[in-house]
Computed example of a mutant assay.
Amino acid sequence: MSARFQTRKWRRLDEPGLEVLHVRLEPDGILACSTVVHAGAEAFGMSYLWRLDRDWRTRRLELRLSGPSAETLRIERCDGSWQVNGRRRPDLAECEEIDLSATPFCNTLALRRLRGTGELTTLYVDLPSLQLSPSRQRYTALGGNRWKYTDLGIAKGFEANLDVDDEGLILAYEGLFETLE
Protein backbone atom coordinates (compact mmCIF):
# COMPACT_ATOMS: atom_id res chain seq x y z
CA MET A 1 0.00 0.00 0.00
CA SER A 2 1.27 3.43 -0.85
CA ALA A 3 0.04 4.80 2.49
CA ARG A 4 0.10 3.12 5.90
CA PHE A 5 -3.65 3.70 6.26
CA GLN A 6 -6.46 3.84 3.72
CA THR A 7 -10.24 4.25 3.92
CA ARG A 8 -12.65 3.07 1.26
CA LYS A 9 -16.42 3.68 1.18
CA TRP A 10 -18.70 1.63 -1.07
CA ARG A 11 -22.34 2.04 -1.93
CA ARG A 12 -24.41 -0.93 -3.05
CA LEU A 13 -26.07 -0.59 -6.41
CA ASP A 14 -28.50 -3.52 -6.38
CA GLU A 15 -30.10 -2.76 -2.98
CA PRO A 16 -29.67 -0.02 -0.36
CA GLY A 17 -26.40 -0.47 1.50
CA LEU A 18 -23.12 1.07 2.51
CA GLU A 19 -19.69 -0.10 3.70
CA VAL A 20 -16.86 1.84 5.31
CA LEU A 21 -13.54 -0.04 5.24
CA HIS A 22 -10.27 0.96 6.93
CA VAL A 23 -7.07 -0.83 5.85
CA ARG A 24 -3.88 -0.38 7.84
CA LEU A 25 -0.36 -1.72 7.40
CA GLU A 26 1.01 -3.26 10.58
CA PRO A 27 4.47 -4.67 11.34
CA ASP A 28 3.31 -8.28 10.79
CA GLY A 29 0.75 -7.76 8.01
CA ILE A 30 -2.42 -5.91 7.16
CA LEU A 31 -5.50 -5.18 9.22
CA ALA A 32 -8.84 -4.45 7.54
CA CYS A 33 -11.79 -3.42 9.66
CA SER A 34 -15.18 -2.54 8.29
CA THR A 35 -18.81 -1.81 9.00
CA VAL A 36 -21.50 -2.86 6.54
CA VAL A 37 -25.15 -1.84 6.57
CA HIS A 38 -27.31 -3.80 4.16
CA ALA A 39 -30.80 -2.29 4.05
CA GLY A 40 -32.24 -4.48 1.29
CA ALA A 41 -34.94 -7.13 1.45
CA GLU A 42 -32.95 -9.20 3.96
CA ALA A 43 -31.58 -6.31 6.06
CA PHE A 44 -28.59 -6.79 8.37
CA GLY A 45 -25.64 -4.97 9.85
CA MET A 46 -22.18 -6.46 10.07
CA SER A 47 -18.69 -5.57 11.21
CA TYR A 48 -15.54 -7.48 10.45
CA LEU A 49 -11.90 -7.52 11.42
CA TRP A 50 -9.76 -9.20 8.76
CA ARG A 51 -6.12 -9.97 9.61
CA LEU A 52 -3.88 -10.63 6.61
CA ASP A 53 -0.24 -11.53 6.25
CA ARG A 54 2.12 -9.28 4.28
CA ASP A 55 1.12 -11.10 1.05
CA TRP A 56 -2.56 -10.18 1.63
CA ARG A 57 -3.52 -13.76 2.55
CA THR A 58 -6.11 -14.31 5.26
CA ARG A 59 -4.82 -15.29 8.66
CA ARG A 60 -8.09 -14.66 10.53
CA LEU A 61 -11.52 -13.15 9.88
CA GLU A 62 -13.73 -12.14 12.80
CA LEU A 63 -17.26 -11.23 11.79
CA ARG A 64 -20.16 -9.98 13.90
CA LEU A 65 -23.73 -9.67 12.68
CA SER A 66 -25.94 -7.15 14.41
CA GLY A 67 -29.65 -7.48 14.84
CA PRO A 68 -31.88 -10.06 16.49
CA SER A 69 -29.45 -12.97 16.03
CA ALA A 70 -26.23 -11.04 16.83
CA GLU A 71 -24.15 -14.01 15.65
CA THR A 72 -20.37 -14.10 15.42
CA LEU A 73 -18.06 -16.10 13.19
CA ARG A 74 -14.28 -16.61 13.39
CA ILE A 75 -12.45 -18.20 10.49
CA GLU A 76 -8.71 -18.90 10.80
CA ARG A 77 -6.14 -20.37 8.43
CA CYS A 78 -4.52 -23.26 10.28
CA ASP A 79 -1.90 -25.69 8.97
CA GLY A 80 -3.05 -25.51 5.35
CA SER A 81 -6.72 -25.73 6.22
CA TRP A 82 -9.38 -23.70 8.03
CA GLN A 83 -10.84 -23.53 11.51
CA VAL A 84 -14.31 -22.09 12.02
CA ASN A 85 -15.13 -20.94 15.55
CA GLY A 86 -12.25 -23.07 16.84
CA ARG A 87 -13.24 -26.28 15.00
CA ARG A 88 -11.28 -27.75 12.11
CA ARG A 89 -13.20 -27.86 8.82
CA PRO A 90 -11.55 -30.42 6.49
CA ASP A 91 -14.45 -29.94 4.04
CA LEU A 92 -13.04 -26.46 3.35
CA ALA A 93 -9.40 -27.50 2.90
CA GLU A 94 -9.43 -26.82 -0.86
CA CYS A 95 -10.37 -23.16 -0.29
CA GLU A 96 -7.54 -20.76 -1.00
CA GLU A 97 -9.15 -17.56 0.25
CA ILE A 98 -12.38 -16.21 1.78
CA ASP A 99 -15.25 -14.66 -0.22
CA LEU A 100 -17.53 -12.66 2.05
CA SER A 101 -20.73 -12.04 0.05
CA ALA A 102 -21.49 -8.56 1.43
CA THR A 103 -18.22 -6.80 0.52
CA PRO A 104 -16.08 -6.24 -2.58
CA PHE A 105 -12.95 -6.28 -0.38
CA CYS A 106 -12.61 -10.07 -0.78
CA ASN A 107 -12.08 -9.60 -4.53
CA THR A 108 -8.91 -7.67 -3.71
CA LEU A 109 -7.55 -10.74 -1.91
CA ALA A 110 -8.28 -13.00 -4.90
CA LEU A 111 -6.72 -10.55 -7.37
CA ARG A 112 -3.58 -10.17 -5.26
CA ARG A 113 -3.30 -13.94 -4.90
CA LEU A 114 -3.68 -14.66 -8.61
CA ARG A 115 -1.59 -11.71 -9.91
CA GLY A 116 -3.11 -12.23 -13.35
CA THR A 117 -5.76 -14.27 -15.10
CA GLY A 118 -6.62 -17.42 -13.18
CA GLU A 119 -9.01 -19.43 -11.04
CA LEU A 120 -9.26 -20.21 -7.35
CA THR A 121 -11.59 -21.89 -4.90
CA THR A 122 -12.90 -19.63 -2.18
CA LEU A 123 -14.50 -20.24 1.19
CA TYR A 124 -17.81 -18.52 0.41
CA VAL A 125 -19.59 -16.96 3.40
CA ASP A 126 -23.25 -16.23 2.64
CA LEU A 127 -24.73 -13.31 4.54
CA PRO A 128 -26.74 -13.02 6.63
CA SER A 129 -27.14 -16.83 6.89
CA LEU A 130 -23.41 -17.42 7.64
CA GLN A 131 -23.53 -20.63 5.61
CA LEU A 132 -20.06 -21.69 4.44
CA SER A 133 -19.22 -23.56 1.26
CA PRO A 134 -16.42 -23.87 -1.29
CA SER A 135 -17.01 -21.92 -4.51
CA ARG A 136 -14.88 -21.67 -7.65
CA GLN A 137 -14.12 -18.28 -9.28
CA ARG A 138 -12.29 -16.99 -12.35
CA TYR A 139 -10.63 -13.60 -12.77
CA THR A 140 -9.66 -12.47 -16.26
CA ALA A 141 -7.30 -9.53 -16.72
CA LEU A 142 -8.77 -7.05 -19.22
CA GLY A 143 -5.82 -4.67 -19.22
CA GLY A 144 -4.93 -1.74 -17.03
CA ASN A 145 -6.82 -1.96 -13.77
CA ARG A 146 -9.85 -3.82 -15.20
CA TRP A 147 -10.86 -7.40 -14.54
CA LYS A 148 -13.72 -9.70 -15.41
CA TYR A 149 -15.08 -11.81 -12.55
CA THR A 150 -16.84 -15.07 -13.43
CA ASP A 151 -18.50 -17.23 -10.80
CA LEU A 152 -18.00 -20.94 -11.49
CA GLY A 153 -19.55 -22.17 -8.23
CA ILE A 154 -22.33 -20.86 -5.96
CA ALA A 155 -23.68 -18.33 -8.50
CA LYS A 156 -22.48 -20.19 -11.59
CA GLY A 157 -22.57 -18.03 -14.70
CA PHE A 158 -22.62 -14.67 -12.88
CA GLU A 159 -20.16 -12.22 -14.45
CA ALA A 160 -19.16 -8.65 -13.67
CA ASN A 161 -16.41 -6.23 -14.62
CA LEU A 162 -14.23 -4.88 -11.81
CA ASP A 163 -12.25 -1.64 -11.78
CA VAL A 164 -9.48 -1.46 -9.17
CA ASP A 165 -6.96 1.09 -7.96
CA ASP A 166 -3.20 0.52 -8.04
CA GLU A 167 -3.40 -1.38 -4.73
CA GLY A 168 -6.08 -3.74 -6.07
CA LEU A 169 -8.89 -2.24 -3.97
CA ILE A 170 -12.21 -2.24 -5.82
CA LEU A 171 -13.32 1.10 -7.27
CA ALA A 172 -16.35 -0.27 -9.13
CA TYR A 173 -17.96 -3.71 -9.19
CA GLU A 174 -20.40 -3.75 -12.09
CA GLY A 175 -24.00 -3.81 -10.89
CA LEU A 176 -23.14 -4.32 -7.20
CA PHE A 177 -20.79 -1.71 -5.69
CA GLU A 178 -19.26 1.67 -6.42
CA THR A 179 -16.78 3.79 -4.49
CA LEU A 180 -18.03 6.90 -2.73
CA GLU A 181 -15.64 9.83 -2.54
Rank of each mutant, 00 (worst) to 15 (best):
R4A: 11
F5Q: 08
Q6Y: 06
T7W: 05
T7K: 07
R8E: 11
R8I: 03
K9M: 08
R12G: 04
R12N: 09
D14I: 02
E15C: 09
E15D: 14
G17A: 09
E19K: 05
H22P: 01
V23C: 12
R24A: 15
L25M: 07
E26P: 00
P27I: 02
P27L: 03
P27G: 11
I30F: 12
A32L: 01
S34C: 05
H38Y: 06
A39S: 12
A43I: 03
F44G: 03
G45E: 11
S47N: 12
W50H: 07
R54W: 09
R54K: 10
W56K: 00
R57Q: 15
R57L: 08
R59Y: 07
R60S: 12
E62F: 12
E62W: 02
L65N: 00
P68W: 06
E71A: 12
I75V: 10
I75K: 00
E76K: 02
C78V: 11
G80M: 09
G80C: 11
W82R: 03
W82L: 04
Q83H: 12
Q83E: 15
R87L: 04
R88Y: 13
R89P: 15
P90R: 09
D91I: 00
D91T: 00
A93K: 10
E94M: 04
C95P: 04
E96Q: 11
E96I: 02
E96W: 05
E97T: 15
A102V: 05
A102D: 14
T103S: 14
T103P: 03
T103Y: 09
C106E: 08
N107I: 02
N107F: 02
N107H: 09
T108F: 05
T108Q: 07
A110S: 07
A110N: 01
A110Y: 06
L111E: 11
L111N: 03
L111C: 09
R112C: 03
R112M: 06
T117C: 10
E119Y: 08
E119H: 07
E119C: 08
T121D: 13
D126C: 07
P128K: 01
S129I: 02
S129H: 01
P134S: 09
S135R: 00
Q137N: 10
Y139R: 01
A141D: 15
A141T: 04
A141H: 13
A141N: 12
N145T: 12
R146I: 01
W147N: 02
Y149S: 02
T150I: 06
T150R: 11
I154F: 08
F158K: 10
E159T: 15
E159Y: 11
L162Q: 14
L162W: 13
V164I: 11
D165K: 06
E167F: 10
E167M: 07
G168M: 08
L171N: 14
L171R: 10
L171G: 10
F177R: 00
E178M: 07
